[in-house]
Design a protein around this nucleic acid. Structure first.
Lengths: 231, 231
DNA sequence: ACAAAAGTGTTTGGAATACACCCATGC
DNA sequence: GCATGGGTGTATTCCAAACACTTTTGT
């Protein structure tokens, strides 16, 4: 971190950065975390939080560190989205960035008070502002991967609290697949699948109160095994 | 490429490399291309072909260039597998590698005569030798992504000739999913899906001769649209 | 009163699964 | 003649899709 120190190599090397696509579902809308850039390039534009890789860390560790530094959220990234290397993606020079997807639960949406100039904000996935760098590319790929993950992994349950209602879950799926599902079929499908277990209704029974469910890990894997056979 | 020239940066940078997982299906087995390393580290061990990123190219372009240089195969990579950054993955120092998946057709399996010391060879995916570096990690992730691609994209048809038989296609699926499918159900599924069109039997009709099909792009997309609804 | 949100059940069609036999070829 | 590989059909089961009404709460 010494500004005077120079690093010298026999061959050209690119600068390596990481970016975080952080998801949060507030029970109503799926949202992504953006920060408003305080410096050039792209000053005042919105971007995914990220920064430069350091010498003693993997890309995954760098992503987690940068996220914590910039937003106070301390959560390991879930999966790689991809690595972006367009020659002109950063006007400062040749940088290559690996983007990660991080999933947070509603209870984890607390943003630390902005200590650096950067302003952080959640944006609904279907109402995103213009993004800096090639972050539109990252966004596109993130959305696609999210759909694949929703098909094949228990990712949805890492975006909701441990206890959730089916209408809530359906709103999450609608946001991810950009499609409105039939409420009755949606509920039937997931209840019959064995993926969800109803939670004993705490106390007062209001007739039409939403029923809470929790994710059933064992049920999920037997369900996936059945489903993941032929292509 | 001047050995004397030094590159100097204000901050530390990693060396960036690319690796290619090249697939070929010979009608019977799915195979991957490996080269035997001629130099340390991991001298004489098998590895995926790859090399260092250069200044004026994207990762995708570097992957294609390296593949051509090392094997004579000139084919653009199809998709990224991931970026691998373990601190100890290369004993020479800190390198980060992005791996790509490349699909070739049976007719494209000609390896150029080895002009560098490297020896290149196709290995059946289920009979791979020990690999150099962290290439076992790359292999694992490549196999997983291939399964996802087989579920959602026309990748299988980029691994077969334009005209193919259903038993051939079934062997390909068996290799990818490591599962034996029922021949009758497999055929029924794909014939009824509209993805495949039978090819007019050229001339002589032998009673039990295999029937040739070709991939039907339009049929594929209407099929996917139906299938890709709920999770 | 009315709109909004959540609960519930039935029917129908299509796809996945399971399963057996015939024909031709090569050894 | 036997093993191998390829073609074909039927019955069942399960899941997906379509579809309407009631209750409660809040305005």
């Amino acid at each position: 971190m010494d500004n005077k120190k120079k690093y010298e190599y026999d061959y050209w090397r690119p600068a390596m950065t990481v970016d975080n696509v952080v998801l949060n579902f507030d029970g109503n809308q799926l949202r992504m975390l953006l920060i408003r850039r305080g410096d050039e390039p792209f000053k005042d534009q919105w971007a995914f939080p990220g920064g430069f890789l350091e010498e003693n860390e993997t890309l995954e560790e760098a992503a987690q560190r940068e996220l914590k530094e910039e937003t106070g959220i301390n959560k390991a990234p879930f999966i790689q989205i991809g690595t972006f290397s367009r020659l002109d993606r950063d006007p400062r020079g040749r940088t290559i960035s690996t983007a990660f997807l991080t999933l947070t639960k509603p209870s984890e949406n607390i943003l630390k008070a902005q200590d650096d100039a950067a302003e952080a904000c959640w944006f609904p996935v279907h109402n995103m502002p213009a993004l800096a760098f090639d972050h539109e590319d990252i966004l596109r790929k993130a959305k696609f991967i999210l759909q694949v993950l929703f098909h094949t992994t228990p990712v949805p349950y890492q975006l909701m609290n441990n206890i959730f209602t089916l209408p809530e879950m359906q709103r999450l799926f609608s946001d991810v697949f950009e499609h409105e599902f039939d409420r009755r079929n949606f509920q039937k499908k997931f209840i019959s699948s064995g993926i969800l277990s109803p939670v004993a209704n705490d106390n007062k029974e209001r007739p039409n109160a939403p029923i809470y469910y929790r994710f059933n890990n064992g049920g999920f894997y037997t369900y996936q095994k059945k489903k993941f056979n032929i292509g």
